[in-house]
Amino acid sequence: MPIKLADIAIFIITLAIIVFYSVTTLQKDSNSSYAKIEIDGNTFIYPLEKDLIKTFHGPIGDTTIEIKNGKISITESDCKNKICIKMGKIDKLGQAVACLPNKLLITIEGESNDEVDILSY
């Protein structure tokens, strides 16, 4: 079978698809921000795209965080003032929620801070 025009066309289209796939995959995803939780010298990382409820043990008791619909918040805490719960949900790069009595700090971080950081200032 001789090589036909369609072969060359498919060759180029397939190559283009592979290049497109590779570039989009290897490019740092700006949507993939994640929550960084620091407590008691330990660091935890949770992507915001996955729903999660987790309880952490701090110096004065338990603090429960919840990730839902791409936002993270503190839903329960053993602290007295409950300021952390009132701080609400966060999802933007650079935002933070903390439960100071329990020494828990949540910050939103991302792969490409550059552009978004400028916007948030």
């Binding site: 660091t43 990382i45 992507p47 996955k50």
Partner: peptide
């Protein structure tokens, strides 16, 4: 490549969880 959970250590840009 998909960090999740407690960070054990850092390996260059990669966080090992």
């Amino acid at each position: 490549l998909y960090p999740f959970g407690r960070v054990l250590f850092y390996l260059g840009p990669l966080r090992i969880t």
